[in-house]
């Protein structure tokens, strides 16, 4: 018996070793296959982030040798009123993206499924803004918003309003650019939602029909819950995109007038390549990264709990 026991133990041990070996071998194989991508990822994503963090501790103009100044860049940053303006403006973009852009994209997507004549043509028309380059869009809208001869002002003149100097007013400039952002990116979410709606099984709607559901119920009980994953990923895209927004503002207002439309991105760019404060710009860059990271983690955690509760439960 004892002998049998020990041999059993030996077999078990052997099996365990084999499993271990297999696991190790698997890990090695997986590692080998992943390594090229991992290397690229480390070199182009992880490493620059760490390098940026490192630079943010220096007073450095970008080419000569920097001086180590510890956390001074961050102290200066948190006392910099322009940075807080920029952060607030980024928040406005985020809110606009999530609460205007995405719902608008959803409405546009739903309209594409409505029995309206010529809707196929409209789907292309809706998508046009997203196809144009941002610089072209920026220039186009600068002309549209021209304080004297712009078509927007001519339009509001028809309704009896006075000309508005859209991009020059510290209060109106942000609104004007936000409008352009919504115009540009809503079609992107439209396409995402459209693809997701196509993916919803027809049977669900048929079953709902049998149960006598009206269109509103069908939307709230079937379409909307099943679109939730798309809404979550759209939100992540929108939020992260808003936090690192740069191009359209750079083209249309350059962060002006008087920093009224300054963003973290444009302010970082100015500090780095206009004022040659590479260390300070790195500090801004790192704060941007950190904020984006925190926001994404929060969204992921919330989504995890949502999935745990189940998609269909209210």
């Amino acid at each position: 018996m004892q002998q049998a026991d020990s041999s059993l133990a030996a077999v078990k041990e052997d099996a365990r070793n084999k499993a271990k070996k297999r696991k190790l071998k698997n890990a090695l194989t997986i590692g080998l296959f992943v390594s090229p991508a991992l290397l690229v990822y480390a070199l182009y994503v992880i490493y620059p982030i760490l390098a940026t963090l490192n630079y943010s501790f220096y007073d450095w103009n970008g080419s000569s040798v920097g001086t180590y100044i510890g956390l001074q860049n961050y102290v200066q940053l948190f006392n910099d009123s322009i940075f807080w303006t920029a952060l607030l403006n980024n928040t406005w973009i985020t809110l606009t993206s999530v609460f205007v852009q995405i719902p608008l994209g959803l409405i546009m997507a739903l309209m594409l499924f409505a029995p309206i004549k010529g809707i196929r043509l409209m789907s292309s028309v809706y998508f046009f803004p997203f196809l144009m380059s941002t610089v072209a869009i920026g220039l186009l809208w600068i002309y549209m918003f021209d304080p004297i001869n712009g078509s927007i002002n001519q339009l509001i003149n028809l309704f009896g309003f006075e000309n508005v100097a859209w991009l020059s007013g510290e209060n109106t400039a942000l609104i004007a650019v936000l409008f352009v952002i919504v115009w540009q990116f809503a079609p992107f979410y439209m396409i995402l939602f459209r693809a997701a709606i196509v993916g919803i099984p027809e049977e669900l709607y048929e079953a709902a029909d049998m149960d006598g559901a009206n269109p509103w119920h069908k939307f709230t009980r079937i379409t909307f819950p099943l679109l939730m994953p798309t809404i979550v990923s759209s939100s992540i895209l929108a939020i992260v995109g808003s936090l690192k927004a740069f191009d359209i503002f750079y083209v249309m207002t350059g962060g002006g007038p008087n920093h009224a439309t300054e963003l973290m991105g444009t302010y970082m760019f100015k500090q780095a390549f206009v004022n040659f404060n590479m260390g300070y710009a790195s500090a801004i860059a790192f704060v941007m990264f950190f904020i984006a990271l925190i926001v994404v983690i929060i969204i992921q955690v919330l989504d995890f709990y949502r999935q745990k509760r189940g998609v269909f439960s209210e």
């Binding site: 004297i148 001869n149 000309n163 859209w166």
Partner: peptide
């Protein structure tokens, strides 16, 4: 000055256009 001057970029030529057109 022309209204909204702080939002009019120079390179795009809207400022010069005001001169050319006699506005």
């Amino acid at each position: 000055f022309n209204p909204g001057f702080n939002g009019v970029p120079y390179d795009e030529g809207q400022g010069r256009q005001l001169m050319y057109s006699g506005q």
